[in-house]
Amino acid sequence: MQVSPDIFYIEDDKDFAFIMQYAVKEVSDDLTVSIVEDGNSAIAMLHRYAEEKHRPKLILLDLNLPGISGLDVLKRIKEIPYFKYVPVILFSTSDDLNDVKTSLEIGANAFLTKPNGYHNLIICVQSLYDFWFNQNRNIA
């Protein structure tokens, strides 16, 4: 029996995923993060969560993924009613305006440019945590 993580993170870059785990722990020891490396496994995993009524508090989605793209993954997530109110945040090295626009149109709740460096990442996760976990807790 699995427990759903606080943050479900789809990221193919092992390094970034690795650093992210540290950053999340740095923000809060209680915070859990689950990471998958590609879109297909992410969607499979999310369907399982839905069946088991596990709901992550936040989904972080890298835009450039091997196989199906971040935007496609986003579409598929939005098709799962169980995750209707789970915030999905696009997380990308790109800050291309077209990407931002499209992802917001599809239904992303925010578009974040991947911060540069460990310290910046901690700041970024911290603000995510503050916003989505504390202030907006009752959104779900």
Partner: peptide, 15 residues
């Protein structure tokens, strides 16, 4: 991407 990794790891080590 790799540049970010370099920076992040280095900062992580320092921290």
């Amino acid at each position: 991407t790799p540049l970010t990794s370099i920076k992040s790891y280095t900062e992580l080590v320092i921290a």
